[in-house]
């Protein structure tokens, strides 16, 4: 696949998934961009062993 393919972010209007700082999502909304906010939390309560295990499964 090359940059000419459908993944090319310069060829389509932005639709954003914002993971983390809500202020980033707010500024995108202010600019009339379609955005969905993910209220992120550390996976597995931040337990690294559990995270590694989850990463293998997902």
């Amino acid at each position: 696949m090359t940059m000419d393919d459908q993944g090319n972010v310069l060829n389509q209007p932005l639709v954003v998934i914002n993971v983390g700082l809500k202020s980033f999502a707010a500024s995108l909304e202010e600019q009339d961009v379609e955005v969905v906010q993910v209220d992120w939390e550390p996976p597995a309560g931040g337990d690294q062993e559990m995270i590694d295990l989850l990463n293998e499964l997902i």
Partner: peptide
């Protein structure tokens, strides 16, 4: 702040299948 009930990237993609950019902070 923006209100959201979405907790994962997967759920966000289900809500916005046309999404083309993910911003991580």
């Amino acid at each position: 702040g923006p209100v959201s009930s979405v907790r994962t990237l997967k759920a966000a993609l289900e809500r916005k299948p046309a999404a083309n950019l993910a911003v991580f902070s």
